[in-house]
Simulated scan of single mutants.
Amino acid sequence: MSLAQIISYYRRVRTWVQGSDAHERTLELLGGFLAQQVAGKQHVSSLHDVEFRVYSQWGDDGIIQWIVSHLPSTPKRFVEFGIEDYSESNTRFLMVNNNWTGLVMDGSPENINRLHRRKWFWRYGLTALPCFVTRDNVNSLVGDWAAGEEIGLLHIDVDGNDYWLWEAIRCTSPSICIMEYNALFGSERAVTVPYSSDFRRFDAHYSGQYFGASLAALTLLARTKGYALIGTNSAGNNAYYLRTDLLSSHMREISIAEAFTTPTFRDSRNRQHRLNYLSYDQRQSSIRGLPVLDVVSGRVEPF
């Protein structure tokens, strides 16, 4: 049995040991072994080749471990927002396995309070703030925490104003930026939801499918900020951007067509807020006609 299979099995049975942190310690130990394995890979055909999951929702823990293993001088500081209570996130294993410090933010005070009560919270240099991030406050929130020091990784996953928040961050240029993209907008159109300071995914549309920006829109923004697209995860929701001065034979820029991944997950809801398991095409159809902003022309048009 491979280590990946062991982790998959252990995740299924770990609920049997609730009340103890033994399952977390075991997951982290196995994740550490996998991190060593992916670090040894010099060239990969795709970021999909190095995926594994410990605390990330998909295989992003492995991707992040592979990238940082090839960037030894990267500052060990991260910023992530849209983390809920941090039980499932893309930077938690980075914090635990690599001893990075970071800032995490979520709009729910209840989520942050739960995070503060976790048994392990005191072990790491983690700042957790309850705040609803907007393009008006995001730059100062990140800048105040960073205090002039460089950041190694930025991850934005707020299911809404992702494009606008990244655009507004001017205080830092992290080595790595991970951006959630909405694959339902397709691989060609450079579009995002129009900015709304109080955007909430399920308020915008009951299905929860109308949010964020396309991969093309985020990649155009990345270029203006000095970043190159190096891949996406196999789930088809997270895009990886590397500052262009860090590109190498290990991590090269690829095209949107190469990187785009059609997701297979089915997280849409019906009007009663229950999962209805629509296919990719059906999910697209559910938001047809809603307004999107073309970031090239600046025009709002129907999706």
Results as ranks from 00 to 15, higher is better:
residue 176 I to E: 03
residue 193 V to A: 00
residue 279 S to V: 08
residue 219 T to C: 11
residue 159 D to P: 10
residue 30 L to D: 05
residue 104 V to Q: 06
residue 235 A to L: 12
residue 128 A to D: 02
residue 217 A to V: 13
residue 205 H to G: 08
residue 199 F to N: 06
residue 158 V to P: 01
residue 150 E to H: 09
residue 232 T to C: 15
residue 218 L to P: 04
residue 187 S to A: 15
residue 23 H to V: 02
residue 169 I to H: 08
residue 269 R to L: 15
residue 66 W to P: 10
residue 127 T to K: 13
residue 185 F to W: 06
residue 86 Y to A: 14
residue 97 N to P: 08
residue 293 L to R: 07
residue 7 I to L: 15
residue 299 R to N: 14
residue 141 L to F: 03
residue 210 Y to C: 05
residue 75 P to N: 02
residue 83 I to P: 00
residue 270 N to F: 09
residue 31 G to V: 09
residue 296 V to A: 12
residue 132 F to D: 09
residue 232 T to P: 03
residue 264 T to V: 14
residue 197 S to M: 00
residue 11 R to S: 07
residue 114 R to V: 01
residue 279 S to L: 12
residue 179 M to C: 13
residue 117 R to S: 15
residue 6 I to Q: 15
residue 197 S to E: 12
residue 121 F to Q: 13
residue 71 L to F: 12
residue 90 N to D: 04
residue 157 D to G: 13
residue 186 G to R: 01
residue 192 T to I: 02
residue 248 S to Q: 02
residue 57 Q to H: 10
residue 67 I to F: 09
residue 176 I to A: 08
residue 148 G to K: 05
residue 257 A to Q: 15
residue 4 A to T: 11
residue 143 G to I: 13
residue 280 Y to E: 05
residue 113 N to H: 09
residue 134 T to N: 04
residue 28 E to C: 10
residue 146 A to F: 06
